[in-house]
């Protein structure tokens, strides 16, 4: 089956590349176009899709809650707030990539830790999601406060970042994103056994020989790394992290996290790529931010899941 997935993925990459092709005058321009526009856009779509899905899967595993995800649990909000502080808090104008990614990572990590503490106190799904929602609107209002103080230039910069985009990644940043993503994927593959045990809850996982604290920290770190770096480079992208892992469990009908991780990587990448292909096809008529597309498809699916559950 994964051979099939690979084929589909490669095929959609080719379609994507075909659609981003532009007639050029010379070799130099073709080079620029490839390295600075087509390739980073492709990488953004693949890594953001795969990364967000994987971080969603890990979150859902840690919280033992299929409705968890980097977006609903406020991980994105944390990254977003940190970025807002960096962009508009007057710390520094966003010239250093490291600053941007670092702060987004830190924000994501803090938010993830905060939500984990909350989840120990609150077992109920709805309450947890409500806290996530409140956290998101809280960070949103801090961002608004920052906006009213900040210089118009900085506000514009932040607003654009906040819309989410697969086209902002530069050729210099792409290797970083790929490297971070690679580390996170390998790290999470090392956790497969623990993730499988976590399905039964942390007490049972402990009795099955899982180092609870290490694994819990690892999951938080991986999630923050993935959601944080993707959010830093592409802005907040909604629903991918929530929808894809659920789809995986539903289609594969398994809790084997080796399969689920692979599914999330392949299908997450495919999903966001397909969304971008869609937006490329629509481009001559009107332009849709990637966030709009993912929400258009993701939100109804999640609503369906919730309805089916109750």
């Amino acid at each position: 089956m994964f051979i099939g997935f690979t084929l589909v993925l490669v095929l959609s990459c080719l379609v994507h590349l075909e659609l981003t092709k532009v007639n050029v005058l010379n070799e130099v321009q073709a080079n620029i176009l490839w390295w600075e526009f087509r390739f980073p856009r492709l990488v953004s779509a693949l890594v953001a899709g795969a990364g967000l899905s994987l971080s969603g899967l890990l979150m859902q595993n840690l919280f033992r809650n299929p409705m968890a995800g980097p977006y609903v649990l406020g991980i994105n909000s944390g990254a977003s707030l940190a970025t807002a502080l960096l962009m508009m808090g007057g710390f520094t104008f966003v010239s250093s990539n490291l600053g941007l990614v670092g702060s987004a990572l830190l924000g994501a990590m803090l938010a993830a830790t905060f939500m984990l503490f909350v989840s120990w106190r609150i077992q109920q799904t709805t309450s947890l999601l409500l806290v996530g929602l409140m956290f998101a609107s809280f960070t949103g209002s801090i961002e608004s406060v920052l906006q009213s103080w900040a210089a118009p230039e900085e506000v514009k910069q932040f607003f654009l970042w906040n819309m989410g985009s697969l086209q902002q990644l530069t050729a210099q940043q792409a290797p970083w994103l790929i490297a971070i993503f690679g580390v996170a994927v390998i790290w999470s593959l090392l956790l497969v056994k623990a993730l499988n045990a976590f399905v039964l809850g942390q007490e049972q996982a402990f009795q099955l020989g899982v180092r609870i604290k290490t694994v819990r920290f690892s999951i938080l770190a991986i999630t923050a790394i993935l959601a944080g770096s993707v959010t830093a480079y592409c802005g907040p992208i909604a629903f991918v992290g929530l929808a894809i892992p659920n789809l995986g469990r539903q289609l594969l009908r398994t809790q084997d996290h080796l399969h689920l991780i692979l599914f999330c990587l392949f299908f997450g990448a495919f999903f966001l790529l397909a969304c971008d292909v869609f937006s490329l096809l629509l481009e001559p008529y009107f332009s849709l931010p990637i966030n709009v597309l993912t929400s258009l498809i993701g939100a109804p699916y999640i609503a369906y899941l919730v309805l089916r559950r109750s």
């Binding site: 981003t20 532009v22 007639n23 050029v24 005058l25 321009q29 620029i32 176009l33 526009f37 087509r38 104008f93 966003v94 010239s95 230039e153 910069q157 086209q167």
Partner: peptide, 28 residues
């Protein structure tokens, strides 16, 4: 963006980029 990139070789003046310096443009 790619269409601007590839079809603007003859452009000699850029007006109203919305920034006051090239470094600010690049930062944006």
């Amino acid at each position: 963006i790619p269409s601007i990139l590839t079809k603007s070789a003859s452009v000699s003046i850029w007006l109203n980029p919305g920034q006051s310096s090239r470094s600010a443009l690049l930062a944006q």
